[in-house]
Nucleic acid binder design. Sequence first.
DNA 1: TTTGAAACCTTCAAATATTTTCGAACAAAG
DNA 2: CTTTGTTCGAAAATATTTGAAGGTTTCAAA
Lengths: 256, 256
Amino acid sequence: MLSTIERRQEIVLLTEKKGNVSVKELAENFNISTVTIRNDLNELNRLGLLVRSRGGAVPSNRLTKELSIKEKHTKNLKVKQKIGEAVANLIDEGDAIILDSGSTTEEVAHCLIGKKQLTVMTNGLNIANQLAQAEGCDVFITGGKLRKKSMSFYGAQAEERLEYYNFNKVILGVDGIDINRGISTHYEPEANFNRAMCDNAEQIIVVTDSSKFGKRSLHAIVTLDQVDILVTDNQLAKEYIDVLESHNIELHLVDV
Amino acid sequence: MLSTIERRQEIVLLTEKKGNVSVKELAENFNISTVTIRNDLNELNRLGLLVRSRGGAVPSNRLTKELSIKEKHTKNLKVKQKIGEAVANLIDEGDAIILDSGSTTEEVAHCLIGKKQLTVMTNGLNIANQLAQAEGCDVFITGGKLRKKSMSFYGAQAEERLEYYNFNKVILGVDGIDINRGISTHYEPEANFNRAMCDNAEQIIVVTDSSKFGKRSLHAIVTLDQVDILVTDNQLAKEYIDVLESHNIELHLVDV
DNA sequence: TTTGAAACCTTCAAATATTTTCGAACAAAG
DNA sequence: CTTTGTTCGAAAATATTTGAAGGTTTCAAA
C-alpha cells in the first residue's frame, strides 16, 4: 500500500504520461475509493501540479516543462551534488557569501543547510527556497526582475545593492570557461551581475562540471587570473589542470 | 549499536535505495522504538534529506518536496481561496500591481496564473514561487533580508525600489483592521514597506478574512479613508459593513 | 428552452492508523 | 555533579480513508 505522498506522486506522473486521467480509472488502479482520489486531485490542483477537470485531471503545462528539464538535470545531478558538497566544505561559520543562481549552486545551497552563522546573498529564486529552510543562515536576495528561464533575478538595482555589503566569498556557477578568455556567459545581465559580485568579494570560487571547459560565450565575466578556487569533477583534461595551476588557482576535483 | 548520526545516515541511504521506508520497518530493523524513528525522520525531513510521509518516508526530490508542503489551516483555506478568486477578478490585463506577502495573497497569486500582460511586484517568496509559473506575468521582487517566519523580504532598499515604478493597484493582506485606527500590523518593517506600497499605488485593495476585524496591532499602516476596495468573507458583522461603506470603501464579500 | 436521468462532486461522521507531546530514565560529556 | 542529548511509553491529538446522503453539472431528448 502506497502512502499518500507516493500515491499523489504517481498520480502526477501518470497524468503527465497519459495526458489525462479519470477518477474511476485511478480509483481502480490504486484500489481505493473515489472520494480519496477526488481529495488527491483537488489537493494536487491546489498545489498547481495538475489541473482538475470534471471526471479526472489533465497535466499542468508547468510540470511537463519542469520534468523535461529535470531529465537533463538528472544526468549531471550526481556530479552537481558532489560539487555542492565540496563547495560547502569551503564555507566556514561566520562567512558572508554571494551565491550565484544556477543548478549547481542550488546543490551548494542545499549543502549549506545546517551551517551556522552564515550570511548568503543570492539572485536565485530556487536558491532562496533552499536556504529558507536553513535556520542558521541569514538570507538576502538581490531583487529585480524574475527571469523565469533561469529562475533568477536581474536588474541594475541588484548590482547597486551589492555595494552596500562586503562579502568574504563569491560562488560563481558558469556556462563556459576558456583558457584564454576566462569565464563567460550568454546572457548580458547575468554577466553584469556576476562582475559586480566578483568586484565585491575577497575570494572568487568558481563551480562547474568539466563539460563546460573549452566553451566561451559572448559576455566575459572574469579572467582566470581573478579566480581563486575552482571546483569541478575529475574528468577534467590534464592540459586544463596544468593551465589552471599556472594561474595559481586552487583546484578541487570531485570523484564521479 | 549505531550512534544517532550513523543510524540517520543509514536511514537516508535505505530510503534512497528502497524508494520508501516505513516507521515500523525501521524500528524493527534498528531495534529501537518508533518514537525515536519518528524523531529521526522528522529531523531528516527538516534537513531536506528525505521527505516525510505518513507512516514512513520517501526519497527527497522536487515532486515529493512540493507534495510535502504543509497543508495550511484548512479551516481558513477555503475562505482564502474564495477571497483569492474574488481579488483576481479585480485585476485586469495590463495592470501593474504590488502584491503583499501573506497566505491570503498567496491564494491571490495562484489565481493570477493564466492572466496576460500583468506586472507584479512582490516581497513574498512564496508569491514569487507561485508567479514563476505564470507565463503572462512579469514578476519583480523587492529583495532584502528574508524573514523566514513570513517568507518575505524586508529592508530599506525594498521601499526605495518602489519609487522607480508606478503601480496601478496594491493588494494588501492585513493582520488587523479596526474602525478607528485603520489597518495595522505587529512587525515594524512590514508596516514601513506596506506604507511605501500604498504611497505608490493608485488604488488600494485590502484583503483579509473577517476574523481580523476589531484587531489592532502596534504599527499603523493606513487609515480606512485611504482604502478603496476591501475583500473579505460574508461573516463580517453588520456594524462594520455600515462603517466601511461610510468611508466609501467598495466592499466585496465572498460566500463561505 | 426546458426537463429528467446519469454521472459526478462535496460534505459529513465514523473507524482506523499514525503522530505529537510529555515526563521520566539513562548515559555521555564537561 | 550538572548539563546535554537520546530514548522511551502512554495518552492525547491529528490525519487518512471511507460509505452514505444530498447537491451540481452535463447532455440529450422533448
